[in-house]
Design a protein around this nucleic acid. Structure first.
Lengths: 170, 170
DNA sequence: TAAAGCATGTAAGAGGTTACATGATTGG
DNA sequence: CCAATCATGTAACCTCTTACATGCTTTA
């Protein structure tokens, strides 16, 4: 069950306040989503509505303004808490953007799950690098980059976890 | 026309020598693809065959062994050379894995196109960071990570480009 | 008044996922 | 002999992309 990150982002944004599709697109861009197409966004809204996670308020002019339902708020916390070990950096970034909306204990669990996943990835990448003797220099460069990036991300997560434990306020 | 990276990887691997599906899956894993599903792989082989880019040699037992055609070799170089500015790190990594198969001048063009795309990304991310005053600390942490990562990747590309210009042999 | 931006949507098609189905071969 | 691995595939479903369609409002 890989969570659709667009769904998570939409729920998270509607948790802040009701919005219509076009407005969501702008907010998503600020979250770092490079222009979500309408062919992705509007069907996603229908999907979430069908599941009872969001609902449209009476239309104001041409706009369909959606708000989060109670079930949606629950689903949001659930989706946000489930870290998939294989999830991409991009997906984790979406998760992180809404981490402040979770209770502190759940936040730490998410950060630690991500840290474990990265540590495992680092282990695998180092292993591949060790076993690969005569690989082409581009492949080697790419593997070395993977090691470097994973190390930097783990150190970064450690900082976030430490700050979280220190119980910093926003 | 966003290039399907799986297609590119398959063409690149078959350029080395003919392989059957199951074997391709193993080779893809070594390239860093976390287990490509058969429901993705076999249809991809059919697709490439339909386009005349690969062809199966007479079957050996249960295996269908595919090789690259002349048209496939041409398509491979074409696909490998076209860097999409929006392409993900993951996609670029696939491209990089086969960069050694391009002529040196094209290699540099690919690396520089990627560098330009990253520089542009960095510019945007810095801009967002500057304009974002009162963002939540997780979002800020994530933006700062983006800046750091982009800077590291640009420096890394600069090294690759310099090595390329120096005309290093494999 | 024309262009750009606001606003919502549909249709076709590509490509991916999971689950299912089949059967041979190899190793403990 | 049973489990794992080799090997190929299909079917249903999901989500995304691009392109198209419509029409209002603001600004140069």
């Amino acid at each position: 069950m890989p969570v659709a990150m667009l769904d998570l982002a939409v729920l998270g944004l509607l948790r802040e306040h009701p919005r219509h599709g076009y407005e969501l697109r702008r907010a998503l861009a600020e979250l770092g989503y490079r222009r979500v197409s309408f062919g992705a966004l509007y069907p996603a809204l229908r999907r979430l509505e069908r599941r009872g996670w969001i609902e449209a308020s009476p239309e104001t002019g041409r706009r369909r303004t959606y708000g989060l339902t109670a079930a949606g708020a629950e689903a949001f916390v659930e989706l946000l808490s489930q870290v998939d070990p294989e999830e991409s950096d991009r997906a984790f970034q979406t998760r992180l953007a809404f981490l402040g909306r979770l209770e502190p204990s759940r936040r730490i669990a998410v950060l630690e799950a991500r840290r474990r996943a990265l540590a495992e990835r680092l282990r695998r990448v180092r292993d591949t690098l060790r076993r690969a003797r005569s690989v082409d220099r581009y492949r080697r460069a790419s593997m070395e980059r993977n090691v470097r990036t994973a190390e930097a991300d783990i150190a970064w997560l450690d900082q976030l976890i430490a700050a979280e434990r220190a119980g910093a306020g926003t």
